[in-house]
């Protein structure tokens, strides 16, 4: 007779006592406990600690003693022009990069949805940028974009396009890092949207064909609305991700030239780990977190994301 279940919980049996039934309830708690403990140590504690630090003038280069200074760091942040410049730059970077990669990803997903010969292989190649370490991506692109030695300018010269300065000029540096970001992360959006496209039911498309809709009308009225939940999720993930872009940009430009690519993450790294002004840096990080939350909330509200989720659950 089996006295216990496979996970050690008492098996249901006739005549089980109240204590046994109560014991079953503690199993989920027990199973969740290790995760909860680890998350508290490596997640919640540092987060709250940084909130505390942000209220101090802690800077390890001045020794280990520090004072509690209240909201002075936050007040200082509001007058920090360089910080708000970085915030603006990051918002612009995110908006342009996400919009471009979304458009490209939808276009690619539609293209690859046709079952042409060789598309399966090509599809795999398309995913490569996403799989490369960001550091390697940064180094590769930095080399390719060198104005005099880089392969990009060489290739452009073959088709008669003149010398571009890429990441080395303030006017084109942001565009250059956007290009790299789009190159690296379009595959991510593509794979999500492509999977979404593949999972759509066939019959509405057949109905649209019968109803007389052409390609564009079908896309606008049938494909796009049905894909919306997937597009919204992919975009949301990309927004959060683009907002904290650091490694590739740092490798390619280190925030320069002349602060042209001084994204929030690059600025935060400088304050926290070059100047070690940890109190102030923590405050800036918390403000950045709030900004991201606001951006996400605005996006969620604009797209009716929660309603989409609710609709799905009702089905």
């Amino acid at each position: 007779m089996a006295k216990s279940g496979i996970i050690g919980a008492p098996a249901l049996q006739l005549g089980a006592t109240k204590a046994v039934r109560a014991g079953e309830k503690s199993v989920p708690t027990l199973l969740l406990a290790p995760t909860m403990i680890i998350m508290t140590i490596v997640g919640l504690y540092p987060l709250l600690h940084s909130l505390y630090i942000s209220l101090t003038n802690y800077n390890p280069t001045f020794g280990t003693s520090y004072a509690f200074i209240g909201f002075a760091n936050y007040a200082r942040a509001f007058g920090d022009g360089q910080f708000w410049y970085s915030v603006g730059l990051t918002l612009a970077f995110t908006a342009i990069s996400v919009a471009l990669s979304l458009t490209l990803a939808v276009f690619l997903a539609l293209l690859f949805n046709q079952n042409r010969l060789g598309f399966v292989v090509l599809r795999t190649f398309l995913l490569i940028p996403m799989l490369i370490t960001p550091i390697a991506v940064g180094i590769t692109w930095r080399t390719m974009m060198m104005p005099d030695l880089g392969v990009l300018n060489y290739l452009l010269s073959l088709i008669g396009v003149g010398h571009l300065s890429w990441a080395s000029s303030p006017s084109s540096a942001l565009a250059s890092v956007v290009l790299v970001d789009v190159w690296q992360w379009t595959p991510f959006m593509f794979i999500i949207i492509f999977a979404g496209l593949r999972s759509l039911p066939k019959s509405p498309f057949e109905a649209a064909a019968i109803d007389g809709a052409g390609h564009l009308a079908t896309f606008m009225n049938v494909t796009l609305p049905m894909l919306k939940p997937v597009i919204v999720i992919a975009t949301l993930l990309r927004i959060v991700d683009a907002f904290r872009t650091y490694d590739t940009v740092y490798i390619i430009t280190r925030g320069g030239p002349d602060f042209a690519t001084d994204l929030l993450s690059v600025y935060l790294q400088r304050v926290n780990f070059r100047i070690f002004d940890l109190g102030y840096g923590s405050a800036l990080s918390w403000i950045a977190l709030v900004i991201v939350l606001v951006v996400v909330l605005v996006f969620v509200n604009l797209t009716g994301f929660l309603k989409l989720v609710a609709d799905k659950e009702n089905r």
């Binding site: 019959s203 509405p204 109905a207 049938v222 609305p225």
Partner: peptide, 9 residues
């Protein structure tokens, strides 16, 4: 259509 083919949106 037997399986309706309605536009869900």
């Amino acid at each position: 259509f037997q399986d309706y083919g309605l536009y869900p949106n």
